[in-house]
Amino acid sequence: MTSDPSTTREALLRLREQTDAQAAALEGDLRSLFEASRSSNADDEHDPEGSTIAFERAQLTAVLDATRRRLAELDVALRGIDDGSYGICERCSRPIPAERLLARPSARTCVACASRR
């Protein structure tokens, strides 16, 4: 991320928009899987062809949950831009290095504090 708040905000908004679209697609996939499993009387627990419907549902749910957490993190980052706290470590109040913010735009701690967890 750059040091310019408006450019950083725009980048975070783009990332949030992409993540939101990903969440919507995952929700659609999960809904389709539920509908398919309701209309099927297959014994997916003993299907020799591969993974069970329950396993696929669990995987999709886990990925969707992670995507929703990412959205929440991006919302926190956007609020941080608005209130001036973006890029400042929540624990030690030192600046978070630009390299870390590039790798993880929603980072709320510096590397040193994150490694102490």
Rank of each mutant, 00 (worst) to 15 (best):
R16E: 08
A23L: 06
S93V: 07
E35D: 13
V63I: 15
A98I: 13
P95D: 10
A24E: 03
S106L: 01
M1A: 12
A103F: 08
E73S: 15
R69G: 03
G28P: 02
A54K: 10
E35S: 13
G50V: 04
T52E: 00
P48L: 06
E99P: 00
L30S: 04
A58E: 02
E73K: 14
I96R: 00
C113D: 11
S3C: 05
C92N: 13
R94V: 12
V111N: 10
F34G: 07
A36N: 11
F55T: 09
D65N: 13
R104Y: 14
E35T: 09
T19I: 13
E45C: 05
A42M: 14
R31P: 01
A77P: 01
D29P: 01
E49C: 01
Y86N: 03
S37I: 09
A107K: 06
R100W: 05
R79Q: 11
A112Q: 07
R100Y: 09
L33R: 07
D20Y: 01
A77W: 00
S106D: 13
C89G: 09
G87N: 02
D75S: 14
L102Q: 13
I88E: 06
Q18T: 07
A58F: 10
V111W: 04
R104L: 15
D4M: 02
F55E: 14
G28H: 15
C89Q: 02
S51N: 07
P105A: 12
E17C: 10
A62T: 02
T67M: 00
L26Y: 10
S93T: 02
C110Q: 06
R100V: 04
D82C: 11
A23E: 05
S85I: 09
D29R: 14
D43H: 00
G80P: 01
S85L: 04
A54T: 11
R68M: 08
G28I: 07
A54Q: 15
C92S: 14
T61F: 11
M1Q: 04
R79D: 13
A107Y: 01
P5A: 02
A23C: 04
R38A: 15
A107R: 01
R31Q: 11
R68G: 01
D75F: 08
A77G: 12
R104K: 15
D4G: 00
A77S: 11
I88G: 03
G87E: 02
Q22F: 09
E49H: 14
S40C: 03
E17G: 12
S85G: 02
I53H: 09
T8R: 05
D75C: 11
I81C: 09
L78E: 00
D47H: 10
S51P: 00
S40K: 05
E99H: 04
G84Y: 13
V63M: 06
D83E: 15
L74I: 05
T7C: 00
S51A: 14
C92I: 08
